[in-house]
Structure formats: C-alpha cells, structure tokens
Design a binder for these strands. Structure first.
Lengths: 239, 239
DNA sequence: GACCTTATGACAACACCGTTGACCTGTTAA
DNA sequence: TTAACAGGTCAACGGTGTTGTCATAAGGTC
C-alpha cells in the first residue's frame, strides 16, 4: 500500500470530505500542530486528527505513508519557524545564546515533534542555512576552523538533545509529570543527613533547581568554556 | 485498583504462573530489558512482556501500577549497572569525566531503553545513590551548595540527553543511519564556496567531526567552565 | 453536456494496545 | 485443619495504527 500517497505536486482532484473540508498536506500539518498545542502531545492520533479535520482517519494515508511521515513533516515546519525570525547581532556569544534558547523553546512548544526529529540530519535548506550561519558566527569570532567545527557540533547537539530531553518531559501525561516534581519534594528532600549528607545539605536547592530545565545553565557553561578557549587561542595564535 | 501492588518487602506468597514461572520485580525488569534490546523499543508492551515471561499480562499489575512504573524500574536498573563499578579517585574533574563517559557508554549499550528512560526521575535507590555521590564529588571539590546543584543538574542532564541523542541515532535502521552520514559527504561537502563560504571552508572538518559523538567535547567544555567557576569562587570566597 | 478514468474519501475490519473488575486457587499462618 | 488472602487468570472495554475494498465526484475529452 505504499503507492497510496501521491506527491503534492501531482495532486489535482481535491474532493471535499463528507463534512465539506478540502484536505491538503498543509492543512493536515497545521491541524496536527494545533491539536498538539491545544490538547497535549498525546492528543495526536490518526483517529483524533481525522475527527478534528472532519475526515475519515484513513484519508490521511493518502497524504502520509504513516504517522512517522506526518511527524517529520511537522518537524520540518518547526525548523523553519524557529529560524525564520532570528537575526545575528554581531556579538557571537549573545547570538549563540539567543539561538540556543530559541531552539530549546521551539522544541518545548512542540514536544512530540521535537522528540522524534532531534537526532535526524535532514540536509534540507533550513538546516544548511543554520549550519552556515552558525559556523559564520564562530569563525567570525576568531575560532580556527577545527575548533569552530568542534564547538558548533557540541553547541547544536546540546541544543537539540536538551530540547528533546525537556520536550520528552513536557510530553509526559500530566499525572506522571506531577509525580516527578513530587519526587524531589517527597523523596529527596526527606532523606536523613546521616545516610545522605550531600542530598540533605542541598535539598532546598535541589527542590528549587530540578523543576527547571538545566539548559540555560548548561548553555552558559558551554559558552563560558568556548570564550575561555578563545582567549587561550588569541594568546598564542599559532598553537 | 491502586492497592493492587504490594511493596516488594511485604511480598511473601509466590505462586508460580500456569507455565511454572515464579514472578518477581527483578525478573520482570530483566525480561523487559532483554525484550527491548532484542526486538526494539516497540517490542515492550504489557502483553508481549507477559508472553515472554509466561504469565498473564494482568499479573504484571501486581508488581507495577502501570507501564510507566515499569519504565522507571528499568531506568533505575540501568543507572545501577552504570554506577556499580565506578570508584571515585578524589580528583573531581577526572571523576566527573569518567562518570560522564560511563553514563554515555551505558546509554549506547542499551540504546532503546536509554531513549525511553533518559528523561525520567525515578526516585529509586540507584538514582538516589548517584545523586548523593555526584553531589559529594562537587561539594568536596569546593563548590558552594547552590553552585554544586546547578552544575550537578547540568552535568547529569547533559550526560543523559547526549546519551539519548546518540542512542537514538544508533537505534536507527542501518539504511537510515548510513544515509545520514552520507549527507555530510554528499550534500554539505559539495556546497560551493560562494554561496556557503563557512561550510566550504570547514567541509573537511565537518565530514570528520560530525560522524563522531560530540559528547566527549561537550563534556570537556562543561568541565572547563566548571573549573573556571571554581577558581573564581576561590578568588573571592564570600561572593 | 455526456462520458470515462481515476484520484481520493469512506467504510469496515484486523491485530494490537493498556487497564480493570471479578474470579479462583495455592500458600501461609494460626 | 482451616481460614484468609496474595497473587495469577479471565474476559471485557475503549482505545490505537493500518489496510483492502468500494463508491463517487472531479477533470479531461469529445
């Protein structure tokens, strides 16, 4: 049944569904994104999406081979949206920080899509654009090529992987998510000092810190280390 | 139905299943891990697990409230296996580096389970042990409590999220994985210098670097930044 | 405007999934 | 010996993704 999907360009006859909706790849992706945003990540199922569109679930298989296909289409749309409004200022550290936070926020806004797409290399236009821009920022800052690539790689993977990590947490059913934050309060904060001295001493900090994403802190650490490298390099340019 | 699960310590009557298997929390977790590694993450379902154990699926609900509980138990087992052979040397930076690399390697050794469990807080014994140990290393190094927690959080999340990221890549079907590494060679390395100067200038480095995990580099960056913080703190102890 | 082709939506079915309430039975303690 | 009950089993519910088949409206052609 893999010949069921017709490439979007070749699509010509658009018959409205029983409920009068004219389907299209774009409409499906948009509706899916809206569904995720409004009713949580697990609201996205072929059947629910069909219902939301006013179409039979099986109709969607005329546009996407399977749900994974749909997820990738959604992810692609997300990359575009993240990059579309970003503009470099010339301050490499501020630029990288801004971009990192945007990528992370983009992932959190659409957790399911982020989780599925974070580890894929698409080789598509937006991704290429991002690589070029990022490398430009780093080389412009004065990092030698090998170092720029090394830091680019770490930076991107950090943004993607933290994005996915936090997105996965956000995509958890509400009950499970609340249970997790409760664990720090109910379990860790109550461990006695004689058996777990370090946890007991920092319990207050743990409860406060662990409910937040560690990405901003990790990002700042990475940028600090990069800046340190840069000053070392400038000190001995031929090293 | 929440009183269905009996705490492991209170469990005493162990009746064998129809097929003669004596169930236990450990046996279930072990079997689940085996199932995941052998047949992929999707192979883990209550019904399949029941079949693999030689027990009715509903029996598992005597041991775990729901599938999520089971996932947490699996995650904790993985943490335990990682930690079991680790011994601190007293050099905080070397210790953290070693531990980070171990966690990463552990994730790669059980890619599917890692992907499923990396973002969960289990509140179980092994996890607690890990938290206590890590905080001990950082506080012992001289980080004040708030700073120790901040760095602990970033360190752990980075190890887990990069672990999951690389594990997800490793869990990809072989064809897809090869296609991805090919993209760097076939697409990026061939971009002309006039439209993509930064990629063209670093293409050689990109092809070499992007096929490797960026975790070791990211880890070293994080540790460098932490060390920098430590010298700053020592410079002005009351800051 | 009628006709033919065919793209595309609808339907029904399949094989799964997690979870639960009711039941039954072997083990254990008294 | 017996009574309690932990723990395994059964059957069912409402969900899921996916597919084989069918019907029909759109589009091109005359």
């Amino acid at each position: 049944m893999s010949d069921r999907v017709v490439p979007p360009t070749a699509r010509q006859r658009r018959r409205p569904t029983k409920q009068g909706v004219v389907l299209s790849e774009e409409l499906i992706v948009e509706t899916a994104l809206r569904l995720i945003e409004e009713h949580g990540a697990d609201a996205l199922s072929v059947r629910r999406l069909g219902r939301a569109l006013g179409a039979d679930p099986s109709s969607l298989y005329r546009y996407f081979r399977h749900t994974d296909d749909l997820m990738l289409a959604i992810a692609d749309e997300l990359i575009g949206r993240t990059l579309r409004t970003w503009r470099p200022t010339g301050d490499w550290r501020a630029d990288l920080r801004d971009l990192g936070l945007r990528m992370h926020a983009g992932a959190l806004a659409h957790p399911r899509a982020a989780v599925l797409s974070s580890f894929r290399v698409t080789g598509r236009v937006y991704e290429i654009q991002a690589v070029e821009t990022l490398l430009g920022v780093l080389r412009g800052a004065g990092f030698p090529d090998a170092e720029a690539v090394r830091i680019y790689h770490a930076f991107v993977d950090q943004a993607l992987s933290f994005g996915a990590l936090d997105a996965a947490g956000a995509a958890l059913p509400r009950a499970a998510r609340e249970a997790e934050t409760g664990v720090w309060r109910a379990t860790y904060a109550r461990l006695p000092a004689d058996t777990h001295p370090n946890i007991a001493a920092t319990a207050h900090h743990l409860v406060a810190d662990m409910r937040r994403s560690s990405y901003p802190a990790a990002l700042d650490l990475l940028l600090s280390a990069a800046e340190l490298r840069l000053t070392e390099i400038r000190g001995r340019p031929e090293a």
